[in-house]
Amino acid sequence: MSFFKKSTRYEVEQFGGFGIFTLLFFIFLYAPIIILIIFSFNENSSATIWTGFSLDWYRTALENDGLRSSAWNSVFIATVAGGISTIIGTFAALSTSRRAKWKGKKATFGSIMLPLLLPEIVTGVALLAFFSAIGLSIGRGNLIIAHVLFCIPFSYLPIRARLDGMDDSLEQAAMDLYSNEWRAFFKVTLPLLMPGIVSGAMLAFIVSMDNFIISLLVAEAGSTTLPIFIFGMVRMGVTPDVNAVSTLILIVSVAIFSLAHLIERKR
């Protein structure tokens, strides 16, 4: 036996120990999450010692009014901000990839993507200063504005990628077949772009649900989001009801992603 198994092609599994490293890698990725899920069913109030199975912590979590209202708050903000940023992202993608080359094309693309690279703390502080400077205080409105801002690149990217992969001869064919610009857009461009738009909206929704730093800085009293509320709970010590909430959020996220995947595969 040599170190490399005989093969005519270059395949990574020929390297010795490939299987073990793969296994370690997946343990590293998922072990903490699996442990979190297991302990959410713990009977005991300790987050580290298993004593028996129970659903009590789920009841405790769901009966927590603060948790419920902050979860609702987060879903509302993510839906509105995700929706708005997807609409803006669609327009941005159309206007950057469906027109003749112009001078500032690269710069425009860069400016749209820049919020991805900016440190969140910078964006957060800037927004906080800006809102107080203009005296804007509309509760959840402030959070929605902030979330739209950092969600745009996330919804823009998949839409643009889809659009770039779409031959513009399809739109030409539509125009050739007696469709004006509007009919060509609604009958051809939009339906073909839909999977990209759905992915963009999903991404924006998840990113918004997940955001902590900017939300913490911008949120006003009475408009707490779920991550901020959970952070508050953890400060008192990790109790299994936090595990239960986290498990619920995980289930929702996985469900949304699976749904998006199914929608995309269908077409």
């Binding site: 030409q172 064919a173 539509a174 125009m175 050739d176 007696y178 469709s179 073909l192």
Partner: peptide, 20 residues
């Protein structure tokens, strides 16, 4: 005139059939 006002139709090199 724009293409949709010309009574002329095209067969494209890559066919450009609408996949949806």
């Amino acid at each position: 005139l724009p293409p949709f006002k010309r009574p002329v139709n095209t067969v494209f090199q890559n066919y450009a059939l609408f996949p949806h």
